[in-house]
Design a protein around this nucleic acid. Sequence first.
DNA 1: CACGGTCATCGAACCGGTTCGATTCCAGGG
DNA 2: CCCTGGAATCGAACCGGTTCGATGACCGTG
Lengths: 341, 341
Amino acid sequence: MNIGEIAKRAGVSRSTVSYALSGKRSVSEETRRKIQQVIDELGYIPNASARALANGRTSTIGLVFPPAGSHYTGMQLDFIGSVVEAAAAYDYDVLLSPSGVDSDRSFQRLLAERRVDGAILMEIRLQDDRVDHLVEADFPAVCIGRTAHPEGDWWVGLDHTALVEACVHHLADLGHTHVAFVNRPEHLLRSGYESAHRGLEGFNKAAAERGLTTRTYTCGDDAASGQGCLERILQDDPATTGLVTLNEAALGGLYRGLAVAGRHVPRDFSVTGVVAGRWAETVTPQLTAADVPAEQMGRLAVDLLVERLDHPDAAPRHHLLTPPISLRASTGPAHGRTTRD
Amino acid sequence: MNIGEIAKRAGVSRSTVSYALSGKRSVSEETRRKIQQVIDELGYIPNASARALANGRTSTIGLVFPPAGSHYTGMQLDFIGSVVEAAAAYDYDVLLSPSGVDSDRSFQRLLAERRVDGAILMEIRLQDDRVDHLVEADFPAVCIGRTAHPEGDWWVGLDHTALVEACVHHLADLGHTHVAFVNRPEHLLRSGYESAHRGLEGFNKAAAERGLTTRTYTCGDDAASGQGCLERILQDDPATTGLVTLNEAALGGLYRGLAVAGRHVPRDFSVTGVVAGRWAETVTPQLTAADVPAEQMGRLAVDLLVERLDHPDAAPRHHLLTPPISLRASTGPAHGRTTRD
DNA sequence: CACGGTCATCGAACCGGTTCGATTCCAGGG
DNA sequence: CCCTGGAATCGAACCGGTTCGATGACCGTG
């Protein structure tokens, strides 16, 4: 069951078995066959801990994401799935590490315990002490998302600013003048969560350019909050005829709020935003949205990390994605009873 | 950075440092303080691989779930999240292992490489060679779901049969006579996927008891398939006024199909099934459903696994859950234009 | 005072791999 | 025929922890 046992049964030394397996030195065809035969018989597979200890590589990458408690969004699910799949293709395993802020013990441990060769971070904040620490320690990591100053980092991100701008322009082009923005929860915005900030920035910029009347909201990551948020929107400004959202989990609630208020989508009210495609398609009418290419992003993150692990001195690389808006069925021209003002 | 370095600076032997850390032998208060001081200064944290090699425990559990490619459902997401969280509470890390069938190399490796102390399996099939292998190898594992003969296994599962029966009875009590069952995708049913089989069984049993006219369908795990499935249902039997589903991901599509067909929920058509609560609440009207307590199940699975790891000889334990139906807004009495037959 | 027991500590062995340097054997070149 | 060099293999050291047995100091007891 261990390499010594294999060596004994094959009548060779442990090092010869090791070389036969790794191919790092030549081994005669005959002994190689003999060793392989013994290995097959016993179903021997080398112990990962021992191997990691000896050569300093664990063949594992850490996926760092915020602590549960709060629920995960569908997008996070897609990231996790695609990261695991992409990592498997490179023969890497994935260790999940729930960890919010840097002070978190489990984050410190992940690095110091050397359980992983590198890490992929999700849910990046503009000022992110986790990223700072990783950079400082020169630990191989790739962010899904980017900080305020990502120059020296490796990352793959979405241009939330441009995406939300595009959404606003889309609504403005359709003639909407009173538009709301439904952001992620307030505590995320406050803690500097990237997409919430950059999205908001894009919204304000484009709205100013187009001279729109706007209001912005934060909204909990669940249907009930979405419904409540929509009530507030119509109460604050009944003339509102469109909204842009980043909040996938609230989407169902927003739709329900509109239904309850008797606003038909898209006739009376247009909805758009930045949402993973498969979720945009579950609501009726299907959401016109910039589809978050979560799968591609997860894959790219792994590609970058593997490249960084293979070439420790490579210059930082990144991918900034700007997926187009998929026109589905949730937006339409502003007209009818809600635009009389 | 390693234990020898700490020992040197503290002026003691490596073993003393180890004992000071583990507390397995007594160490004088004075040396303990000295050692702790050095450790704090250098920020020393023991290497996980070395520790695992020496004492045979990795403090990691494997979470085995089906290969990606196919998309994940929201329920799977909830399981992953709750398992990670619960494991963290016991100081275990979670290693994700995508692996479908047993022949899968990565599944073999997970065990033989000794990367994990135990495993939690998701997506159990009635005949599951993964489970067979684990039992045979006496490897500590807990299933989320149960096989056809789970007697010797450790598992936490849902009584899908009873749950679906309850849904059928609920519809029958409301006067529905023509009812459809929307199952998970056909390939899952064919491969013996537990919930698909037991759910179907419960549906047929209860429908027979109540003398209902029924049809059963398999449906892809996405909105488009759900919509297509609903079209078929109404085409096959326009008198259908209710459906029961296990297919969370298709739910949005089912609703859309009903809207397209002009059937109002719940006035003209009742929808119910077995779905995680947070997803049941995103659709409008909110789904009356047996809420899958995914969070609780993940936590229980970890509890069981930890117990099994701590007491290798303990007798198999399990939890069979039967959550009640949450009455929300998607079911109502059978009447009106669709019940004229 | 000799003896037995506890406390504190150390050195050495071990976990299961990888890797370096040395050794042996053999073929080819001068 | 001797020398050189590459192929094949082995033993030993090492990775960074844990744990066992031994040792010496110190204590109380008969």
